[in-house]
Amino acid sequence: METFFAQLANGASTGALYGLLALALVFIFRATDVVNFAQGEMAMFSTYLGWSISRPLSLSWIPFLGVDRHLNLLTWRPEVFGLPLYLGSENDGLTRLGYLVVLVVTVAIAFVMGALIERLLIRPSEGKNLLNAVIVTLGIFAFLNSLANFRYGPVPQTYPAPFRGDAVDFGLFKMSQHSLFALVVAAVLMIAVYVFFQRTKLGLGVRAAALNPSASQLMGINTGRMLTLGWALAAAIGCVAGMLIAPALSGISPNLMFGILLYGFAAAVLGGLDSALGAVVGGIAVGVGQSMVVQYVGSQWSDIIAFGLIIAILMVRPTGLFGAPAVKKV
């Protein structure tokens, strides 16, 4: 029984990360009607950028700092009058504050990267056949994957995680600190996305621009800016997912998101490609399902069952469990 609950908890945590990736897919689909096949690679690449800036950075190019200064964000320990301004640290010297700085900077870079990709690569194919944009996303997928292989090499690198202590005991089951952390971050992000879409004027603008661009312009909405914002936010969400997934797996490698993206797609299709709530529920369902299959049927069955399920859902309910029943052109 304990195994069952442990699998349930771990499945939910992995599933929440699938849900985040699915959420990013849904974000772009709702804003632009495009299924972004590059979502996983964008997340992988920005996760690598986070890895880069969490290395000791040489500051020797700044003249007045001298030749030997290095900045290591991860082990940053600012103190004021001898009082530490950072929270806790693991035995590898990483501080929670340092991790937070790396996370925030990386997510900001991912946000800008998403906006630039939309502006420079997706925008030119806008208003033409939707298939053009989809093929552009496939191109970005291949490009980022090759670039990561070229720049970082195929060998997995260990990835920093802020919580690596003993597993937390919940009585019925134990859960690793990192899984718990991932679950909490995913939950907070999902709520933030929900509030953004449902309760803010900007979120309403993004939804309107996706539903009917010309009517949105008549309301004074700059629809182009909404599309850029949609891509930027999706890239940021994907980046958070990547940074949480990498330490949970064997570290970061250029193929980090291959399998994850497929499960993210499964989650998005299960929930309905245009439903944020569906992405979350779909993600958790896929994650829990996967860990149950691995535990009780055999790991070789997990992909077969997951993708068999996608095909079955697409046949029975093409819009997913929470998707709008309206017919959409893809």
Partner: peptide
């Protein structure tokens, strides 16, 4: 050209965007 999947109130709020 109303926003068919949004509520009446959301449509009106978009008018005041």
């Amino acid at each position: 050209q109303i926003f068919a999947t949004l509520t009446v109130e959301e449509n009106l709020r978009l008018g005041a965007y």
